[in-house]
Every structure is written in C-alpha cells, then in structure tokens.
Design a protein around this nucleic acid. Structure first.
Length: 488
RNA sequence: GCGGGCGUAACUCAGUUGGUAGAGUGUCAGCUUCCCAAGCUGGAUGUCGCGGGUUCAAGCCCCGUCGCCCGCUCCA
C-alpha cells in the first residue's frame, strides 16, 4: 500500500490536500495523471449506465433543502451522541446505552446520582426540571438526563459499562454530526442551515417525477448521477478508502414493486461485470450480501461489491433494494405526491428503487492497486501500472529513438496529428529504454517510436506496455490502430 | 475517539554522547546513444511537519499540535 501511495505522489496521481500546510485529514487532491484516470473511470461508468434507452442522466445541486435530510433519515441517524468506555474501548450510542440498562437498575442509578449532586444546587434544579419535562413529553427521564450536556457526565459516572462491567470508565458524551453543516447566505443564522449532501441519491429521488415526465420514461427506468458527497467521518482511513469528501457514481432504478427481485439480480450481475470488463482481477472481486438483520433502515436486500485491497476486502459499490422507503418519505415530508401512474394496469403506486452506488474514489484506488505490477527484467526492477487502455491516463507516448536525422521532426508531426484525438505524451529526453520505463509507471499502454527505418518506409514501432513487444505499422495507420485497441 | 509506530530533498532512507545536514534514486542542462531505468560531465532543491521549552548550542532532549500508517472502535 505504501508503494502505491508513494508512486501516486511521485507520478502525479494523488497528492495530500493542503500539503504545504501540514495536510488536511482525510482529503486528497488528484494530480495530472490522477485526474485523467478518475475522469476515465467516471466516463466509462457514464457510458455504461446512460448510453441505453432506459436510463437518464442528472446533475443535482450539492446543497439541498434541509428537509430532504430529515425525510431521508440522515438528520436523525447521523447525529447521535456517543460515549466510549475507556476500559474496554466499546462505543455506545447514548440511546442504546440506556436501552441496555433495566428499569430497576436505572432507578438505583438515579438515586445514587441524586445523592451525588445534592451539594450542587443548580444541578439539583436541572435534575428536577428534567423530571417535569419528562412527565410532559412522556419520555424516560433517564434518557433526557443523558442528553443533558451538564448532567450527563455526572450520571455516566454512576453507570456500569454493559460490556465490561466497569464503573466510571465512560468518556463524556460527544455529539457526532456526520453531515457537514453550512449556511445559506452570509449571516450564520440557524434558520439558514443547510448540509453538504452525504449521498447523491436524494437529489435523484426528489427529481423522480421531473425526470420521468420530461423524458417521457415509463417504468422500469433509471436515473444516473456522478457527484461529490461529504461525510464528517469519525476517522478517515486507508488512503482514499475512507475520506471526508468523495465522489459517488449512483444510479437509481425505478421498478414496479413486483419486479424488484428481478432487477436487483440484474443490476447485481451487471455492476460486477463492469469492473471485470475494465480489467480488474476477477479473483479479487466478490459479493458481500448483507444479512437480513444488518440491513439499513431503508433496505430490503443489499449486497456490496468488494475488492481485495492490500488491507483487506473493502466495499467499492453497493447494490440495494431501497423499496418505496425514500419516495414515501419524501411524499410524507413534502406533501407532494410521488406516485407513478401505470397506463397498462391503470394503477397508481410508489415505485420500488434498486440502487447501484459506486464510489468513484474507491474504484480509482481499486483500479490503481489492481494495475500495479512489478517484475524483474534483466536484473532490473520494472514497475508498471497495467491499466485497461480505456482507463489509462495517457494513451500513447511518441518517442524519437534518437534526437537527430530528422526523427524529432517526424515524431512531432505524429504527435500533433494524434493529439487531436488522444491524450498523448511526447518525450525525447534520454535513452529510449528509460522513456519506456517512465511510461510503464504512468500506465501508458503504447509507445510509438520513430527510428531509422521510419525515414525509409514511413513505419514506426508500437511497443506494448504489458508484453514489452513491438510491432511495426504505417504512420497513417497509428490512429486506427489505437482506436482498435481502445475498443472493448 | 483510544492504543502503538512514524514524520529529514520529489521518492526511499542515513544522521554518533546535542556542536549550523548526507547517500542512493529521481529531476534538469549538455554530450553520447539505433530499442528497454546504459555511460560521461555539470547543475538545482531542505524553515529536519508545525509551535513552544531546556541549553552557550536542538534533526537529536521535553511539552503541545498537525499529518500519515497499523490495531481497536465506528462506518444510518
């Protein structure tokens, strides 16, 4: 993994964000080669997903109405206060912690707690207030006390850790806000709070009827979107794997509820095949089906496509049956009907949604790791990135074998001609062997070399990255040769 | 968030009991070079992550902080 990170920096794939200021945790920048690779991945995905008659594209704004995130469940689920047990290192959500303690025990704890704060009048006052509020709202006073910033710390001291049984081992309760908050308008008024979207999906859901009616689509059909999403992760990890700003490639497929299984299976196959078609090692790809009891609140069925990274298997795409959860919720929260009218059956219903949600950044890293290759050639190490030609940042390098006898002139002509159609690179520095190896590390699949024979018969050699073998072709055929190699 | 490790040139790393920083690779310029990191000559690059402290003197010792990696936790 370290090798990949170091190569990524050395060759201009990925730099740490704000590096000269000491870096910013969990943020990374894509350099000249990185941005090409990333764009190619997104481009391949876009073509695979939207160049078909049953999927439309969309680019929704990153900022959305705050109610979207209430409807989606993110406000509720992304902002739980948590505590850690310092002894056994277990983390608890405050509300789950409360659930783990039985009523009798709670009573005892509250009594001990009250004794403990008798000599602090303001605490006693707050304590009594809490009970009145709990009565009014018909809530557990225990929970309310735990949620109170000043009192919770004292109360936590009275609670034994349900995991290890130790007392007085909890950290103070911390609020985890997994959504980034910001403000609409220059005045930081709470009424104007908006969030940076934690997923692109909601932009698709709220536009479901807009897209459907403007594109005259009928069920089943999908909406695809590529875009940045943001999560205030507790810890970032493993290079690009868990970052706070990342890019998603999502497609939401709207189906009749009775067809959900069929389309779930279809997209499950389809999405795995996409990674394989782009050259990812088959044995390093697998499904990880979510067991029923671990499914997220919105999902009926879910699987991850996982790639075997050097640090272990990790999710690069999720395929979920989200049922009618999202559209129902948006209907409820917005008060607008999101039902679809089926002409054939004359029925009105909320469609089910099959989601395919791939991480662009994670795929980037998976393709990078998968392409990395080392071998020994005549006692020297050769390292190469064996990208599928369609993903390779640079498609071809043009190299004059030596810098004389008119070779540079011919090479430059070839370069100018190819540059219109392909991302190419011209290099005349140093020995040709060194230039080949440089291109290997950048992942360039083809090197076109102009030599003495070129001067006689207008042919060049094309050296292939993986085999290092060369073929000789006519200059006028280079374009079609490359085009052919860039086909599936 | 907790525990551990690390931070010196673009990369990999060395740096003695504290005495004003080195190597290899890469890179750049030139020469040479007819096919796989060849050779020769010359050049450039460091607030030793950042901030503070101890000291006559800190890359080295102490404190804080930021970042990266590993493990745990978390990942609706």
């Amino acid at each position: 993994m370290d090798k990949i990170v170091s190569l990524a920096k050395r060759r201009g794939f990925v730099f740490q964000s704000s590096e000269i200021y000491g870096g910013l945790n969990g943020c990374w920048d894509y350099g000249p080669l990185g941005v090409e690779l990333l764009r190619n991945i997104k481009e391949e995905w876009w073509k695979a997903m939207t160049y078909r008659d049953d999927i439309e594209g969309l680019d929704a704004a990153i900022l959305m109405h705050p109610k979207v995130w209430e409807a989606s469940g993110h406000v509720e689920n992304f902002t739980d206060p948590m505590v850690d047990c310092k002894q056994c290192k277990t983390r608890f959500r405050i509300d789950t912690l409360s659930e783990m303690i039985n009523e009798k025990k709670k009573k005892k704890i509250l009594e001990d707690f009250k004794t403990g704060i008798l000599n602090i009048p303001e605490f006693v006052e707050k304590y009594n207030e809490t009970f009145i509020v709990a009565e009014e709202r018909k809530e557990d006073p225990f929970d309310l006390l735990l949620e109170n910033k000043e009192l919770s710390q004292k109360l936590l001291q009275e609670i034994n850790c349900p995991q290890c049984g130790n007392k007085n081992t909890f950290t103070s309760a911390r609020q985890f806000n997994l959504m980034f908050k910001t403000f609409i308008g220059p005045v930081e008024d709470t009424g104007a709070v908006v969030y940076l979207r934690p997923e692109t999906a909601q932009g698709i859901f709220v536009n479901f009827l807009n897209v459907q009616s403007s594109s005259r689509q009928k069920l089943p059909f999908g909406i695809a979107q590529v875009g940045k999403a943001f999560r205030n992760e507790i810890n970032t990890k493993n290079f690009l794997f868990r970052t706070r700003e990342f890019e998603q490639m999502e497609m939401q497929f709207f189906v009749k509820p009775v067809d959900d299984k069929k389309w779930y299976d279809y997209w499950k196959d389809e999405r795995l095949q996409w990674f394989k078609d782009l050259g990812m090692t088959k044995s390093k790809l697998r499904y990880h089906d979510h067991p029923k009891e671990k499914l997220a609140h919105y999902a009926k069925e879910a699987t991850d496509i996982e790639y075997e990274f050097p640090f272990g298997w990790g999710e690069i795409e999720g395929i979920h049956n989200r049922t009618d959860f999202d559209l129902s919720r948006h209907e409820e929260y917005s008060g607008k009907s999101l039902k679809y009218f089926d002409e054939e059956s004359k029925e009105k219903f909320i469609p089910y949604i099959i989601e395919t949600s791939a991480g662009a950044s994670r795929s980037f890293m998976a393709f990078m790791v998968d392409a990395y290759y080392e071998e020994e050639v005549k006692g020297e190490m050769r390292s190469a990135l064996k990208f599928h030609p369609r993903l390779a940042p640079i498609k071809a390098a043009i190299l004059p074998l030596v810098n004389k006898d008119g070779m540079p002139e011919i090479s430059q002509k070839i370069e100018i001609d190819l540059r219109k159609r392909f991302k190419v690179f011209y290099d005349d520095k140093g020995a040709v062997g060194r230039r080949y190896r440089r291109q290997d590390e950048a992942g360039t699949p083809f090197c076109i070399t102009v030599d003495t024979q070129t001067l006689d018969d207008q042919t060049v050699t094309v050296r292939e990255r993986d085999s290092m073998e060369q073929v000789r072709i006519q200059i006028e055929n280079i374009s079609s040769y490359l085009n052919d190699k860039l086909k599936f």
